[in-house]
Nucleic acid binder design. Structure first.
Length: 868
RNA sequence: GCGGGAGUGGUGAAAUGGCAGACACGCAGGUCUUAGAAGCCUGUGCCCGAAAGGCGUAGGGGUUCAAGUCCCCUCUCCCGCACCA
């Protein structure tokens, strides 16, 4: 017991760093000043910097991934402010979504109440971390009508522009979410939210956004985004999946009423090698033929069942290829050959046309299939082998399947024989087009974005169905609401049940309305919008978050956009990040903004790992930010998140490391408090650029050395912020500086360091810490006798003169092997370095009996003597 | 299979082609203390040794005066895509 009291006494030792006391004290001051981190108006004329982190879903609990993401963004925002930029650093809440409904089911809490409570909780956590957001000016919650009414407004604009439409189609259905998912939200055949829940296919009437209209621009624009990680750009390229090829029609023999089979191929030049037609099991012709052929019907049913089963076990793609002949034939329009029609399990119904021409000689899959069934394999393309390298030609090129097209020529292809493969692709496509049985085509993997969700907690879609119909609208036809009818409010009193169907459909007061055109009875659309709609444009709202008349003011958006730096997780590479690029292009075409891309630079930070695995509840390796803050303080927690690894790499969370940072901050605190009286006693309270005494006059050796390290540190950190972002080495550099100051304590105590130098050291050190440890920096800045907020101080300037070394160390190698390191005056020329290296005793010993072949003096690096 | 990233001490990690392992964690010894904790000091890649030395960046080859870094081949791990015609 007595020991505990003794420990308590230490906690309240004023000499001792105590974040639990310092941090809440400053936080209370900051919270009381809503303008503290507000950006200046767009008319300020200052250079702007829009620093954005991805907005969180308000789960109610901040996790370490958030802390890391926001620590990176906050360090940058604070640095840019100190560099004199007008910084917009906003935050908000991605507040619609299924978890609120699940919580309602479980706890009988209304989704709105649950969500708003979570927001409050998380905001408390975020404020506790000291993140410099302009809450008062920018905070948004997407579940509030002030926000989602603009989702509805955009939806109406898109309907008007033909970019939103309703159609029936096969859609992805997650049985756990009990709603439809967009293609982007299906991961490996499963739901992105429920990774072990298989997505089913259902035929439903749904609203779609015509993102495919922008497919080319979305793809080509990636080349103009050098500030985005190559990985993200590649993922988007693959997702869009543009493929240029040709449609060719194959007529079915002896079935005059059946439409021709349309085939998509990127290799029309190989068409003389086609030896069969392969249909997907779901192809319309397959269905037609199966209807009259029980054996075929059975085979097709089995194929579909097999695919479903394979998707469940996860090895779709490894299924063995197999197929069944339909007994029907098609005609190759290029040469009149008769080709058997098959149905095969490796033909995808939803890519291209769901039918292919099979060219076994020049396609690996077709080859495998043809071998299995003994189908004819006919070579029609051969590599060009110049006589010169004929001897060395790779025999692989002569074997089949041969899929090359560069330096390849057509053989056995009628009038095209001898053409280069690439030229033939062009000419043969044109030939097909001229003769009316084909057309050059581009296909995309990207499909239109299905945005209807059969859920309650989302934005109501502002459309109604006119029950009786009127001029131009048939009974039950869809009618857009006028803008004046917005917002369509989400009803609040609603019972959430687990029954299927859109929950809004059960709220009769919501459903029953009148048609805005004819005034007759109408039924509201009861689906809500995908929550990715909310996050597709939220960052524009931040620039004018309180605007009640428009989503935002164009002038303000045009000042702030594009986002200078966007920071978030890579998991949104083909969800949020492709939707928001699409939305930006739509808004541009609506005349709302001038930019075509939302963000100039994108940074994707690494994951937070614990014991070698991603932190997750299911693995039980979650470290709570609240615990860390309670034990070590917010400064130590966020600083560790930046110190433990460079921001783009995965970060292993080790609590000992946080303790280490905490000890480091305690050392900084103790030293600064100790010398604060010296600093305060000086007349000139300096502000940023006045800091450096610009000369060494009267400076001691020790003092000069400290200033040298200081200015090298300033230079390093300043440079890193604008380039590499290796905050781990920035913090290491600050540690080196502090270690040196600490080692000079005796000198400082005995007058060996000028008071002005001491003042410069501690002021600059405090400023350097500000982006990483804002609470401690604020405290120390005050202790140093300053009254202005440390965040508004100019960032210290590195003085190259002060940073320059007076002496240099030159490693000397003999035959590339390090022998010794010699010290020389910094201004030594090559001759002096050379002479000194040869004079060194260790080097001389190595040279005995040898001849110097080469004497390399690399200025500023080393000396290497090559001897024999 | 294809695309991207990575592989360096006991651990997290540093190194514009130029002294490998900065900085930190951990560990060991010391100091202070009645004792412990905290703090402070010293040491800490591996091997042998008293020392001098030798070996070291997944493995193998190459370019270079000089390679963790550039080139070629192989292996392992992580992430993404995956029958896309």
């Amino acid at each position: 017991m007595p020991q505990i009291e003794k420990n308590d006494a230490q906690v309240f030792d004023p000499q001792r760093y105590n974040p639990a006391e310092i941090e809440p004290r400053w936080q209370a001051l900051w919270d009381a000043d809503p303008k503290l981190y507000a950006a200046e108006p767009h008319t300020s004329g200052k250079p702007k910097f829009y620093c954005l982190e991805m907005l969180p879903y308000p789960s109610g609990q901040l996790h370490m991934g958030h802390v890391r993401n926001y620590a990176i963004g906050d360090a940058l925002a604070r640095f840019m402010r100190m560099r004199g930029y007008n910084v917009l650093h906003p935050m908000g809440w991605d507040a619609f979504g299924l978890p609120a409904e699940n919580a309602a089911l479980k706890n009988h809490t209304p989704p709105r109440e649950w969500t708003l409570k979570n927001i409050e909780q998380m905001k408390v956590q975020m404020r506790r971390i000291g993140l410099s957001y302009d809450w008062a000016g920018t905070e948004i919650a997407t579940c509030l009508p002030e926000y989602y009414r603009w989702n509805q407004w955009f939806f109406l604009k898109m309907v008007e522009a033909g970019l939103a439409y309703r159609r029936s189609s096969k859609v992805n259905w997650c049985p756990k979410c009990a709603t439809v998912l967009a293609n982007e939200q299906v991961v490996g055949g499963c739901c992105w939210r429920h990774e072990d829940t298989l997505v089913e296919q259902r035929e439903l009437e749904q609203w779609f956004l015509r993102i495919t209209k922008y497919a080319d621009e979305l793809l080509d624009g990636l080349d103009k985004l050098p500030g985005w990680p190559e990985k993200v750009r590649t993922m988007q390229r693959n997702w869009i999946g543009r493929s240029e090829g040709t449609h060719v029609d194959f007529h079915v023999s002896a079935m005059a009423d059946t439409p021709a089979i349309k085939v998509f191929t990127t290799r029309v030049d190989t068409i003389f090698g086609a030896t069969s037609i392969q249909l997907a099991p779901e192809h319309p012709l397959t269905k037609q033929l199966a209807a009259a052929d029980p054996d075929l019907a059975k085979a097709v049913t089995e194929m579909i069942a097999e695919q479903k089963a394979a998707r469940e076990t996860g090895d779709i793609g490894n299924i063995e290829k197999h197929g069944v002949s339909t007994g029907k034939n098609a005609i190759n329009p290029f040469n009149g050959e008769t080709l058997p029609i098959w149905v095969a399990n490796y033909i995808l119904a939803d890519y291209g046309t769901g039918a292919i021409m099979s060219v076994p000689a020049h396609d690996e899959r077709d080859f495998e299939f043809a071998q299995k069934y003994g189908l004819h394999i006919k070579r029609v393309v051969a590599p060009v082998i110049s006589p010169k390298d004929a001897a060395g030609a790779d025999t692989d090129d002569l074997s089949l399947p041969y899929t090359g097209e560069d330096d390849a020529v057509l053989v056995d292809s009628g009038e095209w024989t001898g053409e280069g493969a690439l030229e033939a692709q062009d000419k043969m496509a044109r030939f097909a087009e001229e003769n009316g049985f084909g057309k050059k085509t581009t296909t995309y993997r990207l499909k239109d974005w299905g945005v209807s969700r059969q859920r309650y907690w989302g934005t109501p879609i502002p459309m109604v169905y006119c029950i009786n119909g009127h001029d131009g609208v048939k009974p039950g036809g869809v009618v857009a609401l006028p803008e004046s009818a917005l917002p369509v409010l989400l009803p609040e009193q609603i019972e959430i049940t687990q029954e299927g169907g859109s929950p809004l459909g059960k709220v009769s007061a919501f459903v029953h309305t009148t048609c805005p055109v004819c005034g007759g009875p109408a039924r509201r659309e009861t689906d809500t919008m995908d929550t990715f709609v909310d996050s597709s444009w939220y960052f524009y709202r931040y620039t004018d978050a309180r605007n009640a008349h428009a989503p935002f003011d164009s002038e303000k958006a045009n000042y702030w956009f594009p986002i200078d730096q966007y920071i978030g997780g890579v998991e949104h590479a083909i969800l949020h990040l492709i939707y928001s690029r699409f939305w930006t292009k739509v808004m541009r075409d609506l005349g709302l903004i001038a930019n075509s891309e939302p963000a100039e630079r994108l940074f994707t930070q690494g994951m937070v790992i614990k014991d070698g695995a991603k932190m997750s509840k299911s693995k039980g390796n979650v470290v709570s930010p609240d615990d860390m803050i309670a034990r070590y303080g917010a400064d130590a927690t966020r600083m560790y998140a930046l110190f433990a690894a460079p921001p783009d790499r995965d970060l292993e969370w080790q609590e000992e490391g946080v303790a280490g940072i905490s000890r480091f901050l305690a050392r900084v605190y103790r030293l600064t408090i100790k010398y604060a009286p010296v600093v305060r006693s000086l007349e000139s309270h300096t502000h940023g650029d006045e800091i450096a005494p610009k000369q060494f006059a009267g400076q001691t050796e020790d003092g000069a050395a400290l200033l040298r390290t200081l200015h090298q540190t300033i230079a390093k950190i300043t440079e890193d912020f604008s380039g590499r972002w290796h905050f781990n080495t920035c913090i290491a550099a600050i540690m080196i500086l502090v270690n040196e100051i600490s080692a000079a304590e005796t000198a400082m105590d005995t007058g060996g360091i000028a008071p002005a130098t001491i003042a410069e050291l501690f002021r600059a050190l405090t400023l350097l810490l500000t982006p990483f440890a804002p609470f401690l920096a604020a405290e120390l800045w005050q202790q140093l006798g300053e009254t202005a907020a440390v965040f508004h101080q100019p960032w210290p300037m590195a003085d190259a003169e002060l940073a320059r070394e007076s002496e240099i160390e030159v490693p000397v190698q003999v035959n590339g092997k390090l022998i010794t390191v010699i010290r020389l005056a910094a201004d030594s020329d090559e001759a002096a370095i050379s002479a000194a290296s040869l004079a060194d005793a260790k080097v001389v010993a190595r040279l005995v009996g040898k001849t110097i072949v080469k004497h390399l003096v690399i200025k500023g690096k080393l000396v290497n003597l090559v001897v024999r």
